[in-house]
Design a protein around this nucleic acid. Structure first.
Lengths: 127, 127
DNA sequence: CCAATAATTCAATAGATCATGAAAAGTCCA
DNA sequence: TGGACTTTTCATGATCTATTGAATTATTGG
């Protein structure tokens, strides 16, 4: 499962925008906890006090940003995280923030052979 | 420098919202590259094709989310990242996404003594 | 087929966000 | 002090986002 990072600032902004609402963040968290199996819309609605149409609206926003996918299962629609895409967003943020040096972001660092002081490549130019 | 994570979903959503615009993402990246010293507004504007008032608007959004701070230096105003806050946002995302298991997010994992199979604590309940 | 269930779509509305340009507020230096 | 420079603020209008409830689509089981 290779991370799929946003390719442009506009794409990245759209992904952050998808998370920029408490109801969507709550749905996002619900789907994180649901794991790869996902959760049906009704279960997410039940946990979030949202009307069906409001939930549908917000899930569509998450899906438009590529953070979530959905499929029909009988009369239900099941949603699950696009884990690779989410990993891509985190990688994007870490790259922007840390320029390839995760420890600057407060993240744990992988145990690797010494690189003779050669720093990791900085974030490349992006439109 | 301890990460300062968002404390509520609303706070987290506001932080994501601050990054949910290409111009702000560009300014954010500029400030990342500027480091702790920061950059004056004019330098950011010059690199971003934004009018002074548009830039001011977007920097204010970043500041309102706590991602950026500013201070006056003579006739300039200098902006710099709030690194701890940014680390907090990443920690929040990793916690939500990975429930304490960074490898699920595609992140490198700190080399630690074995934990006898006891998993890390999951993300705690948050309003 | 029909009724019940699950979810989405749609229209209307309210509110938030954004771009623009003019005006104003600080600061510096001659 | 006065003019130049940097940045912010403000008002306007345009566009985007969110909420609501009614209508619609899809599916199941009787």
């Amino acid at each position: 499962m290779r991370p799929i990072a946003p390719t442009t600032l506009t794409d990245g902004a759209a992904m952050f925008g998808a998370l920029a609402h408490p109801a969507r963040l709550a749905a996002f968290r619900h789907l994180v906890q649901a794991g790869q199996r996902g959760a049906v819309a009704g279960a997410i609605a039940g946990a979030s006090q949202l009307s069906p149409s409001a939930l549908s609206f917000h899930l569509k926003e998450l899906a438009a940003a590529g953070l979530v996918r959905s499929w029909r299962e009988g009369r239900y629609v099941r949603y699950a995280l696009e884990v690779a895409r989410l990993q891509g967003l985190i990688a994007f943020l870490v790259e922007e923030c840390c320029q390839g040096r995760p420890e600057l972001c407060g993240l744990p660092v992988e145990d690797r052979p010494a690189t003779d002081g050669v720093p990791a490549a900085p974030a490349s130019a992006r439109s």
